[in-house]
Design a protein around this nucleic acid. Structure first.
Lengths: 206, 206
DNA sequence: ATATTAGATTTACATATTGTCAAATGTAAT
DNA sequence: ATTACATTTGACAATATGTAAATCTAATAT
């Protein structure tokens, strides 16, 4: 934006209100994308229907997001940023290791349950599209790093099997497991309620 | 096949050798499908490339499998049938409840690990295509029923929380969790090795 | 052996979707 | 009023799925 560095421009130009409008359409597109993905999966999710639902042209969406994958990536970024993950900062600095574990579990369980349907689709896409999958792998690795610090914080008396515990905690706090649990229970609340105890038993009793 | 009950047929006709050929092409297509899905996800998996890889035309594949989804469903059925699941019969009739639990876990862990990449793709597709997802949900429900019998067999002294245990066992033996575990460990063998202990701790200690 | 016939395979076509481009139009900042 | 940029419009190429009619193959009856 702006016209910095463009020698053909004869005077400066700030977008101002137009940027706001762009932001609104961008939000509208993302909202429509979310709705369509959740409702009907990838079948309903076409640039055409997206354009119609958000009241703009296909071309505009291309201008705003690049490609269809671009829409997905943006959507993924948005929910990751606005999903309560900022609480992780506090959690990871908790003085008590047990509190850290509990907070760790709770933050993820909340995030997963809040965005369950959408994340199901997005992770599904990641599973069938290796390239898109990298974006999600990166986040999983961050979760694994956090899990490492949690396990180290617990400081058990058998440090030899820490790697196993880290891997278990990482897998048990994955979206995939949470989703499977919610599926088996038939509702999200039960999964959210049972998860902490389940993980503590799996990890701590040895 | 054959022409049974078709009034427009003027004389009996057995396919014989031609059926063998069909079987071979069918197998070739499925093999190519598996390879392409595992290697490059849905990007590589087109009717065109499938036809080229298996040495037939697109139309032949349509005749043999109906639609592209038909190929996937057949592939899913094939691995489900030839994946060692027949051992479940013996497992579920084991006299000792602990053996039943162990066998239950082991059969699924083996199946998941043997077909990991392919199942990752197939479950991914199920996640983004609600209609296709039903086929997999059906199998998950069968696993949940089996899990119910396993938990009931264990006959613990707190039958009030059986539903929770059933749901946990179902989720912990899901492909999604196994895959997440293998991902965190970095290899399948470790996941296979750790899973039984993890599940026993999560379930039994209370 | 050979003509007949079911149905396997091919060829050609219709439809839908993504992505891109150029030019026209709209709109807010200067 | 003029300029910069966003947005629309319309068209196009590339790619994919799925279908209909034409052609070929091989099993069978005579």
């Amino acid at each position: 934006m702006g016209n910095d560095g463009n020698p053909s421009c004869k005077r400066p130009y700030e977008l101002g209100k137009r940027l706001e409008q762009m932001g609104r359409t961008k939000a509208a597109v993302l909202s429509a994308a979310r709705q369509q993905l959740e409702a009907g999966g990838m079948r309903e999710f076409s640039m055409e229907s997206l354009a119609k639902a958000s009241g703009v042209t296909r071309q505009t969406i291309h201008n705003l997001f690049g490609t269809r994958t671009g829409v997905l990536e943006t959507l993924f970024d948005v929910i990751a940023r606005d999903g309560g993950m900022e609480r992780m900062r506090d959690v990871m600095t908790a003085p008590d290791a047990g509190d850290m574990l509990d907070g760790f579990i709770e933050v993820f369980a909340t995030f997963w349950s809040r965005n369950r349907l959408l994340l199901k689709r997005i992770h599904g896409i990641a599973a069938i599209d290796p390239e898109f999958g990298k974006a999600i792998e990166a986040r999983n690795q961050r979760r694994q790093m956090a899990a490492t610090r949690v396990i180290e914080g617990l400081g058990d008396r058998a440090p030899g099997q820490r790697p196993e515990k880290i891997a278990c905690l990482t897998a048990l706090t994955s979206f995939e497991f949470f989703d499977a649990l919610a599926e088996s229970f038939g509702n999200v609340e039960a999964a959210q309620k049972q998860l902490p105890g389940l993980i503590r038993r799996a990890l701590l009793k040895d």
